[in-house]
Structures are given as C-alpha cells and as structure tokens.
Design a protein around this nucleic acid. Sequence first.
DNA 1: CAGAGATGATAAAACGTTTTATCAACGTGG
DNA 2: CCACGTTGATAAAACGTTTTATCATCTCTG
Lengths: 334, 334
Amino acid sequence: MPITLKEIAKQAGISISSVSLVLNNKPNRISEQTKELIKKIAEENQYRPNTIARSLVTRQTKTLGLIIPDIENIFFSKLAKILEIEVRKEGYTLIIVNSNDKFSEDLLLIDLLISRGVDGLFLAISNESYLHEEELVEKLTKLPIPFVMIDRILESFECNKVYFDNITGAYLATKYLLEQGHRKISCVCNTYISKNSLSRINGYKKAMDEYKIKVPKEYIIPANYRVEGGYLAGEQILKTDCTAIFVCNDMMTLGVIKKFYECGIHVPDDYSIVSYDNLLSDFLFGIKLSSVDQDINELGISSWKVLKDCLVSDDQKRESIPQDICLSPKLIIR
Amino acid sequence: MPITLKEIAKQAGISISSVSLVLNNKPNRISEQTKELIKKIAEENQYRPNTIARSLVTRQTKTLGLIIPDIENIFFSKLAKILEIEVRKEGYTLIIVNSNDKFSEDLLLIDLLISRGVDGLFLAISNESYLHEEELVEKLTKLPIPFVMIDRILESFECNKVYFDNITGAYLATKYLLEQGHRKISCVCNTYISKNSLSRINGYKKAMDEYKIKVPKEYIIPANYRVEGGYLAGEQILKTDCTAIFVCNDMMTLGVIKKFYECGIHVPDDYSIVSYDNLLSDFLFGIKLSSVDQDINELGISSWKVLKDCLVSDDQKRESIPQDICLSPKLIIR
DNA sequence: CAGAGATGATAAAACGTTTTATCAACGTGG
DNA sequence: CCACGTTGATAAAACGTTTTATCATCTCTG
C-alpha cells in the first residue's frame, strides 16, 4: 500500500494540510525548513498522490474519453495515437474505447465513460448511429460534460465538431480524372448509411455536373467499406464501359485492384483510379495511386484544441458557442 | 450535476445506507415497498453511481491499463481490440497507452496508470526496454498491482507472461523452405535489440543446423522492423546468392517485395519468401505469401485469463505463482 | 406477559484528498 | 504596553460512496 498524505504528516509531525499545500506547490506560508522535510519524506517513500481521492474533491479526473468505431482501422488508430500524445502533454489521460460501429455501443460507452468521470469526450460515432440520429442527439444534448464530434458528425446538430470536407475531397478527385481526359468515370461508394460517403458521392456528382456529364445509374456502385466490398464492386465495374474510377476509400480500392489483378486487368493501364485516405503508399508496388489525403494529425490536434477550450473554465462552458471546424483534404497525385 | 445517493435518500425520506444497499442488490432487509420507491426515484433521475467515490472505498477501480509500443502497428491494435472486448465483458474498462517504443515512456506510463488507480496491468514493453532490463525488473518487482507481460517478455524475470514461441515459428518457416528444396536461405531480421527477433534467428539457425547447412554471415541481414528496413534489406539480399528468404515480419516483407518489384524481380518466381505475422493477405495481389501466423485473439484471451486470476482474490495475490504461457504459432502455407 | 427472534432500517466510520477560514505566537511602531 | 501586521501552520468540512454493527419495533411462544 502506497504512502498517504496522512502518514507523511505523521512522520513529519505536522498537519495533513501543510503536506498537501507543499507537495502541490500551492501558495502557503510554510517555512523552508518544513518544506524540505516534507519533500524529503515524500521522496523517500515514493509518494504518489491518490488520483481517485483527489478527483472526488476537485471534481475533475484529468481523464478524457475517446469513442471510435474500429481501432483496427488505421484511420482511427492514427487518430487515437495523435490524440493520446496531445492530451498527455497537458496532463490528461485518454481512455480509448471501441464501438464496433454499433449504435447501442455508442450509447453504452458514453454512459460508461461518464460514470468513469471523464472530463470530456471525443466522439467518432458509428455509422449505425446515423439511423438513430434523434435518439443520439437527445443523449448528447443532456451530456453533463463537454464533447467534440470527430470526422463522423451530425450535420444538423449544433455542437463542437471537427471534420473533413468530403464534398471537396471527392470533387477534387473526380475533377482530376476529368482533367486527365476521362469522361466515363464510375464511383465506388458506401451508399448504405455512411454520411461521409454520401458527401463524397455528392462531390463526385458536382464535378461531373460541371463537365455537363450525366452520370448513368450503373456508374454509382455501392459497396461496404471493406476490402471484400471493393472486390465485389470490381465485378460490377467490369460490366460498365467506364475508363476511370473514383473509389471512396482505400480498403475498397485494395479490393477492386485485387479483383482486377485476378482478371489480368492492370491499373493504371486499363483503368485510372483515384482513391481516398492516402494510406496505401506502403502497400502497393508499382501502382502509383493518386489519393485524397486527409491530415489526421490536424484532425486530432484541432479536436483537442476545441475540447481544451471547453475544459479551461467551466464558467464559460455553458455559454460558449460550439465550434464547427471543417478541414480541407488535399489530392495527392502520383 | 448528476443525482447522488444522498439526494435519492432525501427524496425517499430514508437513509443513504438503504439506498446504497438496494441499488447494489446487496443482502438487506428493506421492504419491497421501499425498494421499489428507491428504484423508481433512481430510474427517473437517471442515477449513475459515482465510480470515483466508490473506488475510494472499495479500493478498486475496475479499470485496467494496457501499455503497447505502437497502436498503429496492426499487431498491437488487434491485441488492444480483443483485450478491450474481453475485459469489458467482465465490467472492466481498459486504458490504452502508447510507449512509442521508448523505455522512458514505459517507466512513466506505469507510474501514470498506477496513479490512475488501475487494478492491473497488461504490459507489452518497448524494444528499448531490453537495454534497461535491470532497471525495469526493479520497477516491476515493486509494483503494487498484478500485471502480465504480453508478447514482449523478459525471459529471466519470473512473472506472469503470455507470449509466442518465436523459435518454433521461425523453425517451421525455415524448415518449410528447406523441404521445398532450398538450401541457400537468407534471413532478414532486426538484430539490434528485439528479443523476439533474436529468437527467430535462433529458430532459423536451428532448422539450418538440422540440415547441416552452415549459414554464411551475409545471409543474416539486419534491418529495422519497418517497411524501409525491408527495402534496404532487399538491396543486401541481391548481393547474395540465396534462393529463398525468411523475413522476420510482414512490414519488412513489404519492403523487400517493394525493392524487388522496382528491380523487376518477381516473388515467388525469383525468390521464395516466408514471412511472419500473416497480416498481409488483404494487401498482396497475386503473391501467395506463406507466413507464420500468431493467434492474437488467443494471446489476448490468455493474458486476460491470467490477469483475472490475480484479480479475483487479493488474499492469494501475493502467494500465487506466476503463470508462464507460451503459445505456438502456425505456419500458413500459400 | 416476559423473553426471544424476526423485521426494517440506520448511524457512523472510512477511503485520501483539497481548501478556506482561523488560530497562536511573535515582533514592532507609536 | 496596546494594537496590529506578519509568520507559520492547522482544523475541519467536503466529495459520494460502502459496510458493519446497532437500534427500535413488532410478533410470537410458552
């Protein structure tokens, strides 16, 4: 059992208050002599303050929660990493939890973290939660702590949010293919529930519109956002007459290329592809893949800045208007 | 501010004790009527126990710590995921922190988590920590809570540990290449500090020994464990006359293949490769890569079982002998 | 109707901190 | 020598729980 303030006080023959004051460098009028004695005893016994007890009275745990849909997804593990680094610089600890892209888990984990006494929350909601927007908004509205939505946001809900401009990203990607001379461009995208994917489709359509190209129905190919989805999408693509493809994320791109490879079809000789996420540079050989890059570090750093603002003074917490930060993706041409 | 036991008690006109007893389903002799009243008030006000306060008296936080070297590394993010799922089933919360493969961070994070009051610790140490084994052992020996070392273990230190048999893994891989008729087999491995890598080299040598093959010095090619390392190793390989390669992890394999690709060399036509980790199936096209598979789920589940044993009864905690669990990897042939 | 047992509930200490108001003792200036 | 400022330090409440020993009150039973 670790040593407590009480025991230090006893050993030094003084009061608990004095020990606390000195060890926390709080303004006090303890003599230099006593100070040194206290510090010596604390040092010798490896005193570590009991964070639990401290939290009970200060009403803050210096702990933050992060809810992500899938820690195995490199996008989110990168996000978790940068957030962990950043918040720790400020003396906070991050609790990372996985919702497994389930709405019910989002709800449950919010409660769990609140009950754990986190001071604030980073929230990248599951895709499933978009099907229960109302319920989620109700929950978030009565949250007793500040929070910021990351990447997966609710457009119509006013709250702190940091995210990427998916429309522009997709627009840039599609426009690049158009500028390369392509006119028959298909789009592989998760059309089921992912809001971000829908935005990407809109960006794609916007670019096509500008070139007065009417998009045939079969050019928009739905797929889940995993490799298998891309693989299946690859089959569909072959049935169209397109010459270029905009794929809405890297995992699906892998699937598409895999299918193509098996069919003896080469990228970029037979098809031009622009992907999304720019996370594949280590994995593809000989295939120079252009991709829309989202600066995850910036996403993390901005999110922390937003949340930190809410944390500094709980007086303002209530009044301060929520921040809405939209980051611009870049097209990386290879 | 959330509702407390005290307030429920006041509203119901009874004592705090009664409320606590009822809400925790502790053996009590409160009348059904009162019980219902308490539950109703708690429900209506969305009572959530203050975990902080509870922890202060029960002396357990139902929180565990996990220290990993790199959350971006898919091996560790998979591990984190399975652990998080498993411990949550038992009502625990996992705090995941990153050491960035730094010894100093290992030390610091241990203190951080202890001070956070975690009940137990999962520890996958940084490679750098192997250079400071003595110091680390000293720290771990005086840890006030149970812990289990995962994957990255200290061989000569008696403590709970769950890990893979790296010698056998490498042995199987090398033997497979030998059985395929190869005799000139090189080995790409991190020889600097990674203990697991050294074991793999030993497994490799063991297989070569069995076939009475003397391994030329230049066949053992040192590399860091990242893609760049593999890329550089690729250059070295080309200077040898080997026909097959055992690469000690998947990231380096990617690097090797990348280098080869740039040189117009084909796998497996020009070189046979067996890799380690079996994490690349989604990323390689047309290259059927045999690889040593480590069951990360089993690693996580076993580790949790070991730690859980220490958590159940703190009477035994001191006396129980540490568990040493060695898992066997499998060779996946493609 | 006395004593015993059952029933329903509670008082109070404890966990380890933080923080503010208060206290005693000691100069010092007028 | 009185009043006052300074110095060094502390007492005590508070945070929200858990848990055990204890307390009334009631109801049987012989």
